[in-house]
């Protein structure tokens, strides 16, 4: 063969069967640790303005309190009390927002740990999450020294499945309301407004089932996630259609047959929304 030797197979010495090759693939491709979210320039500007407003207001208030003390001790004390109360409320609000937002981030952390197969991190997240669940909700109990698959299965059946049922019930309730609104409301614009408000309330209710109490920022983040999951749910779920049909065969529907089409759409949206919100808040993804 033009100079080069013939192809050939050279068997290893010895008769022992060899181990299969191992390229350490799992480690090589493991998801890189999530890099800290970087700030966009708009975020930097907004943050700067917030710091300026709050910081200058604090300084201003401090100066003002000091000046009042200079006038009279009682005047100073009252001013201080007012300033403390006011700023206290502001910071409390901020802290609550932050907690609500970070609570949602813990969902991402738990799911990432699950995807990586990082049992220790997942167990830690699950424990923290269970502690946050609203009182009265059944918990899966201690998950230590349990294989990851078993722990997930337990959490799924003990906690997540009942939550999903409750979420579906909330969805049905909202669907009935939405349906009723179309039947009586005078204008489509009002419909849209009511649906929007009811939808957001529904999403927050479902989040509460999962132990999240999102503030404004948290709700926005949540709505974004829900929008993503809604597509998946809509694409995969035939059960929703059956449920809507079941709902609409009730007597309410017969009375307002003319409105049934618009009502069906609204009701369907609510049921979907409840499912999508449940999907978005789950600490471990639904087994597909």
């Amino acid at each position: 063969m033009s100079g080069a030797p013939q192809p050939r197979i050279i068997l290893d010495e010895g008769a022992a069967p060899a181990q299969r090759l191992d390229f350490g693939w799992e480690k090589a491709v493991a998801a890189p640790p999530a890099e800290a979210a970087r700030w966009s320039s708009a975020g930097l500007v907004a943050g700067g303005i917030a710091v300026l407003l709050l910081g200058l207001a604090l300084l201003e208030a401090g100066n003002f309190v000091a000046a009042q003390f200079a006038r009279a001790a009682w005047l100073g004390a009252v001013t201080l009390a007012v300033a403390l109360a006011g700023f206290g409320l502001v910071f409390w609000g901020i802290a609550r927002e932050a907690r609500g937002y970070l609570g949602l981030a813990s969902v991402d952390r738990a799911r990432a740990a699950h995807a990586r197969g990082d049992a220790a991190a997942l167990r830690r997240e699950l424990a923290a999450w269970q502690a946050r669940l609203p009182p009265g909700r059944a918990r899966a109990g201690a998950l230590e020294d349990m294989p990851m698959e078993a722990a997930c299965a337990l959490v799924e059946s003990k906690v997540l499945a009942p939550i999903a049922q409750d979420a579906a019930a909330l969805g049905r309730h909202a669907a009935m309301q939405a349906f009723a609104v179309t039947a009586i409301s005078p204008s489509p614009a009002l419909d849209a407004l009511v649906f929007g408000w009811r939808g957001i309330r529904l999403v927050r209710q479902v989040a509460a089932l999962h132990g999240f109490r999102p503030g404004i920022a948290g709700t926005l983040a949540l709505l974004r996630r829900v929008a993503m999951d809604a597509a998946t749910v809509a694409a995969t779920d035939v059960a929703v259609d059956a449920m809507v049909r079941g709902l609409l065969s009730s007597r309410v529907a017969e009375h307002v047959a003319g409105e049934a089409a618009a009502g069906a759409v609204a009701a369907r949206r609510m049921i979907l929304l409840a499912r999508a919100a449940d999907e978005a808040c789950r600490v471990i993804p639904r087994a597909r």
């Binding site: 063969m1 080069a4 030797p5 013939q6 192809p7 050939r8 197979i9 050279i10 068997l11 290893d12 008769a15 022992a16 069967p17 060899a18």
Partner: peptide, 8 residues
């Protein structure tokens, strides 16, 4: 069994 193959 393990083997080294020279494919030509």
């Amino acid at each position: 069994k393990g083997a080294t193959i020279y494919p030509g």
